[in-house]
Simulated assay, not measured.
Amino acid sequence: MPFTPVTTLDPERLKNAAQTLCDVFGIAALHPHQEKAGQNILKGISTLLDVPTGGGKTIAFWYALFCHWQPGNTDTDAQKIVLVVGPLVALLQSQAHTLNDKGIPAVAITGGSQAQIWSSS
């Protein structure tokens, strides 16, 4: 299914996404740059997020996912994929592990994981 960017964002859905992210990851609130970047992603706008290490780039990517997916939601409309491409294998693996620990389906696909992925099917 091809990506179809949204033209208008549902304020209630955005509010729920932000609140769920805060609840799941134990943070008080999202930073404005995280919400703006996440909304740009939903709209299909190319976005460069230049913040220092620990500045919350990952949450910005997950914001788009949480606009569609909520814990326990099995509705087919919520079956979305967020693809994060990164140069740091250990970071991608850590992020996937963190999501899985919180009950959120995730996988880190790296150059070293190809044999594992294809041999398990």
Rank of each mutant, 00 (worst) to 15 (best):
K36F: 03
A115I: 15
L99M: 15
A37K: 02
L14Q: 13
P52L: 09
S46A: 14
I45W: 10
G86A: 09
V51Y: 08
I45M: 12
K57I: 05
G72D: 03
C22Q: 06
V85M: 15
Q116K: 02
I104D: 01
E12Y: 11
L30Y: 08
T58H: 06
T47R: 10
I41F: 04
L91Y: 03
G112S: 07
T7K: 14
L65D: 01
C67H: 08
K15H: 14
V85R: 13
A18R: 04
A78L: 09
L30Q: 10
G111I: 07
A78N: 11
D10N: 15
K102F: 10
D50N: 10
L48I: 15
S119L: 09
T4Q: 12
K57E: 09
T8M: 12
V51N: 06
W118L: 11
T20A: 08
D23Q: 15
T76L: 10
K80I: 02
T53Q: 04
A17R: 01
G54I: 09
Y63M: 12
N100D: 11
M1H: 09
P87G: 14
A18E: 12
N73H: 04
P5V: 13
P11S: 06
A115D: 10
N16P: 00
L88H: 13
S121T: 01
V107W: 06
D75P: 01
H97W: 12
G112L: 01
P71A: 02
A64H: 05
N40T: 09
P71R: 03
I45C: 12
G56H: 04
V51I: 13
P5A: 05
K43P: 05
E35Y: 04
E12P: 00
A90L: 11
G103D: 07
S121F: 02
V6D: 08
P52R: 09
V85T: 15
G56M: 05
A96K: 04
N100F: 03
G72C: 07
A60Y: 03
V6C: 11
F61P: 00
Q39D: 10
I104G: 02
G72N: 05
L83P: 07
T98R: 03
H31G: 02
V82I: 15
D50A: 15
V89P: 02
C22F: 07
K15Q: 15
A18I: 06
V107C: 03
V6Y: 09
T53G: 05
L21T: 07
M1R: 13
Q93N: 12
V107A: 06
V107G: 00
V24D: 05
T7P: 07
P2E: 03
I117A: 00
F66A: 01
F66I: 14
T53I: 06
T74A: 10
C67D: 06
T7S: 14
